[in-house]
Design a protein around this nucleic acid. Structure first.
Lengths: 159, 159
DNA sequence: TATTTGGGTGGACAATCTGTACAGCTACTG
DNA sequence: CAGTAGCTGTACAGATTGTCCACCCAAATA
């Protein structure tokens, strides 16, 4: 359940220049093309690499506001029905169930602060949701990243 | 600052089958290859598509625990120095500054609950951090997604 | 109404890459 | 020692990419 240095270098390389082909990667990494292909196949098989989907920036679509909404739900109804409802709201990008005083944590986006109110209202209207609390993301000094983690692992993995 | 139906279909297609080439996309969408290429170029130019990096699952790397840590910082020191320090911790995947009683919101991962303690200690040790509060993500009923948002926009965009 | 301009179509070309297969070599393991 | 896994180098046919071009159409502009 770990990756070695070559895997890490490959992932780093592809993260930085995603449009590289297998052949070019093999050249950059100084290994045979077959090796790169095999590594990528294995990484995908093991679930390390789950896809290569295009990364879309919500802000570029006009969704300039990002917020985190935590919610308390009526215990009897359970999490799943609520999650299903939330999944039906496009502006809800991500939902987690969590420990602590609240029950769920969502990432949502909206076109403006006023629009955020609309989205929150949609969430509040979900059956089973008792209370919500939201904070707006003002800035994102560290955007989502995975590279440091990937490059950290190899200390253990050999090669 | 918006996308039309063709853009949305293209993004959907690529999200679902990222390994498709331009040519295959053009066939699936029933448009000329040049059109697909032009669209992708434009989407990238406009910042809608920011990349095609491989999506890495932290869990597959052994980081089974995801947590959200909110922190209060010493006001005088400012956010940036703190963010810079946080950026130095590989397990910190994402940092936002936020409204509300707390100042920052981070997504972190760890190898176990015990390991999470280590990561939190690293965060607490950051100069300027006054207090942290964390919740563990137990489950992720809605993993990060962007498609519903992309497919929602076209109602306005013509074509 | 005449004219730009942006975007789409279809086609063509050379250069490149991909998928796949095979044989040889090395390191590790039972 | 034999077997297995993983890497290398090589090979080949078929598909794709990067470009460029001429032409067409619709909407905005003069």
């Amino acid at each position: 359940m770990t990756i070695d240095r070559l895997d890490a270098r490959l992932i780093s390389l592809l993260t930085e220049e995603p449009k590289l082909g297998v052949l070019e990667c093999s050249r950059r990494l100084g290994v045979a093309r077959g090796t790169v292909q095999a590594r990528l196949d294995r990484l995908a098989e093991r679930g390390v690499i789950t896809g290569y989907g295009p990364d879309v920036a919500p802000a570029a679509l006009g969704y300039d506001v990002t917020a985190f909404v935590t919610l308390q739900i009526r215990q009897v109804s359970g999490h799943d029905p609520v999650a299903d409802q939330l999944a039906g709201i496009p502006e809800v990008l991500e939902v987690h169930t969590i420990t602590g005083g609240d029950d769920m944590h969502c990432r949502v986006v909206a076109r403006s602060n006023a629009d955020l109110q609309r989205v929150i209202d949609l969430i509040v209207d979900v059956r089973g949701v008792v209370r919500t609390s939201s904070v707006i993301a003002l800035d994102t000094p560290v955007p989502y990243r995975i590279l440091p983690l990937v490059n950290d692992v190899p200390r253990r993995g050999n090669s």
